[in-house]
Design a protein around this nucleic acid. Structure first.
Lengths: 195, 195
DNA sequence: CCTACCGATCGGTAGG
DNA sequence: CCTACCGATCGGTAGG
């Protein structure tokens, strides 16, 4: 009888995501990880090349997820406003479906070392540029005010990428509610339309 | 002749802020710090009780600065909209005037240990509550839409507290520009008023 | 502010 | 996947 009840490698990755999120990458030791997994520290190295390899895997997998989600939306023929709403929804989905991993992605990438680090940064810039193009085309078409797109995209990312700080998966708020709040705030603001 | 050309303790604090920001608290060793300061590692302990004492000092000093800035505004008799603008300006000022320290404040507080940690959290909650009260009174008076104040304040904090990630002190953007962008985005949104 | 040093812990390897 | 272990580095102290 096959005893592949679970994939140890995957288990290690998931526990690492959780520990890196909770305690930070630098403050998490391979011994902490081994203990949570339930094996001896040295045994981790049968499944994992190094501590940093764990971090790399998290960071680049999440980068892929963000890209894949965005590409599908960029292809569509939509107004800038609709495209932006859908892109926000897609981005927030990736976050909510990968809370541990995205938190590590946002916080711990600076601990990547040389070749990975610059690759990571360039992926991030590329993604931001693609996202920003939605805002820029909205400005061009007159749908949006003539805002500073470089600053606006930073503010939008800030709202989306800080969700992990306050979102409670067991709370009443659903993904739809969060997306609506961000879209409403970013696109229309909080001021009463009667004023 | 007095040789107090500078305060060593203050110098240590400032370099610690910078290192904690750049490399993170856990990944910064007292030896790194000593090297930057230009003394032997053991000599740090003539000026500093422990590594964590350095972190505590940063976190609680910044908490104080945020509180002081906000109290002055809460006292004033202003519309919710004006009060909110001024509070945003005050909060952003603290950040821009303390970029290293506020970055550490936002990122590294989780490395505080037991009694400090809960004190820190309760200060944060208290500050958020005070800030949120501005939005709540704006909703009550009809100045603002009937938004979810708990979510709105998280989105507003996200925009303000992520500034350190992209702000370049040597760039063209002035504090006034950043505040305007945040106020405009949060209060009015990016959508063209003609639509 | 320094020399000398402590016990603890780190990421990782050898060899089975 | 384990036992046994490596050299490096950690925060911090004693004593001057």
């Amino acid at each position: 009888m096959p005893e592949v009840l679970f994939d140890r490698k995957e288990q290690i990755n998931e526990i690492a995501q959780n520990l890196f999120r909770t305690n930070g990458y630098a403050a998490t030791s391979m011994r902490d990880l081994a203990k949570e997994v339930g094996i001896e520290p040295a045994s981790l190295y049968s499944h994992v090349k190094s501590k940093e390899a764990l971090l790399q895997k998290i960071c680049f997998r999440i980068a892929d997820e963000f890209f894949d989600a965005l590409q599908k939306i960029l292809k569509k023929e939509l107004s800038a406003q609709e495209k932006l709403s859908k892109a926000i929804n897609a981005h927030v989905s990736v976050i909510l479906n990968n809370l541990d991993a995205t938190t590590v992605f946002f916080h711990e990438w600076k601990h990547l070392s040389k070749p990975s680090l610059s690759e990571f940064k360039s992926l991030r810039n590329k993604y931001e540029k693609q996202f920003r193009s939605i805002i820029e085309s909205g400005i061009e078409s007159g749908e949006f005010d003539d805002v500073d797109a470089h600053v606006s995209i930073k503010l939008l990312f800030a709202m989306m990428n800080s969700i992990y700080e306050w979102y409670n998966p067991k709370g009443k708020l659903k993904q739809k509610d969060i997306v609506e709040n961000i879209v409403e705030t970013f696109i229309y603001g909080v001021v009463s339309s009667e004023n």
